[in-house]
């Protein structure tokens, strides 16, 4: 039964695509054909799911998740090569990959930068010129610079954010005083305060204002979610602490911190995403180095393949940072499987 259905879907898929190709309709209604093809693929995959044995279901689901982006990339490649999309604006994935390789191995003499800092040169440079030369390899890297800005901004913002959030969660007076103001500042797009930061810092074009904006955007998100986390602790746990003779310090470490941790972490995840958005936006407008700069610079010189390569790197950075945060989360909260 299922096999017949699979066969029917498959035949429709092949017939449709041949038919459209013969009629030379791809050029005009390619988006519609792609949509129908997608629906057919989904129908096919659903039928396949019914005949996969239970123990392979998990594997099958993972295969679907991995194969989808691969299909998208292949389709992209094909429709660009078929002349349907303009390769100037939408360079095919193979060309983007080549551009990424190009950015990785080559040093930009004009800007004195490279994408990853050419770590393979480190051993030979160390031998000839010592540690300062290795350090300069690091500082020439777009990726490491962006990571450094996000990391420092995040730490400088999140730690005071957690502290203030806990204080606001525990002390009603401070909460009443600050809550409305915090909520008002919270909705302000943090990138909008970048000009103020440039006014405040002695070197408006240095690292100071960039890191400050990342820190401030992380700070408010983390402070507000930490406050919510502390307030969200079931009062019965505080009663248990009291009943079992916990003093203030013990109540703090045994009840308040672990009790608020899950919501603190959801705030940290939000803050991390925002930090990445903010840093890329700042690197667009005012930076000589950083992945945001890579994207924007190559847009300006119409090297779109390198622009996409930069976007790809931003995406990988986002995934990587989220991964690290999740690993910390699992390590700190083993009770949440």
């Amino acid at each position: 039964m299922t096999k017949t259905r699979l066969l029917i879907i498959f035949i429709i898929f092949i017939a449709l695509n041949i038919f459209i190709s013969l009629l030379n309709l791809w050029q005009s209604i390619w988006w519609l054909i792609l949509f129908v093809d997608f629906v057919l693929v989904v129908a096919f995959a659903e039928q396949v799911a019914t005949i996969i044995p239970l123990k392979y279901q998990k594997l099958y689901q993972r295969a679907l998740a991995i194969s989808f982006p691969i299909f998208v990339l292949i389709t992209w490649e094909l429709i660009v090569n078929a002349g349907i999309l303009n390769p100037r604006w939408f360079p095919p994935p193979t060309k983007i990959a080549a551009a990424l390789w190009d950015l990785t191995i080559n040093y930009d003499r004009f800007n004195k930068t490279s994408l990853f800092g050419r770590p393979w040169l480190a051993p030979s440079v160390l031998q000839s010129d010592g540690w300062p030369a290795v350090w300069s390899l690091f500082t020439e890297s777009h990726v490491l610079t962006t990571l450094w800005r996000v990391f420092f901004g995040f730490i400088i913002g999140a730690i005071p954010g957690i502290l203030l959030g806990i204080i606001m969660g525990l002390n009603k007076t401070i909460r009443m005083m600050l809550d409305a103001t915090m909520s008002a500042v919270y909705v302000l797009p943090k990138i909008a305060i970048f000009p103020i930061m440039m006014l405040i810092f002695p070197n408006p074009f240095g690292e100071g204002p960039k890191i400050a904006v990342v820190a401030i955007s992380a700070f408010f998100l983390v402070a507000i979610s930490t406050m919510a986390g502390v307030r969200d602790i079931d009062p019965v746990f505080l009663q248990v602490a009291k009943n079992f003779g916990a003093n203030r310090r013990q109540t703090f470490w045994h009840v308040i911190v672990p009790g608020a941790l899950p919501i603190i972490f959801s705030g940290l995840r939000l803050a991390l995403g925002t930090a990445l958005i903010v840093i890329v936006a700042i690197e667009f407008i005012r930076a000589q180095i950083g992945v945001g700069y890579v994207v924007f610079y190559h847009w300006q010189i119409l090297a779109t393949d390198k622009m996409y390569a930069g976007l790809f790197v931003v995406m990988v950075l986002g995934i990587l940072l989220t991964f690290i945060l999740q690993a910390i989360e699992r390590w700190l909260m083993p009770w949440r499987k």
């Binding site: 079931d234 019965v236 746990f237 009663q239 248990v240 009943n243 079992f244 045994h254 009840v255 672990p258 009790g259 941790l261 909260m333 009770w335």
Partner: peptide, 15 residues
Amino acid sequence: NNVVFQEYAIFPWKT
């Protein structure tokens, strides 16, 4: 005294 609470009230974050 010690109390056994109705809703268990054991800490989910402790073994």
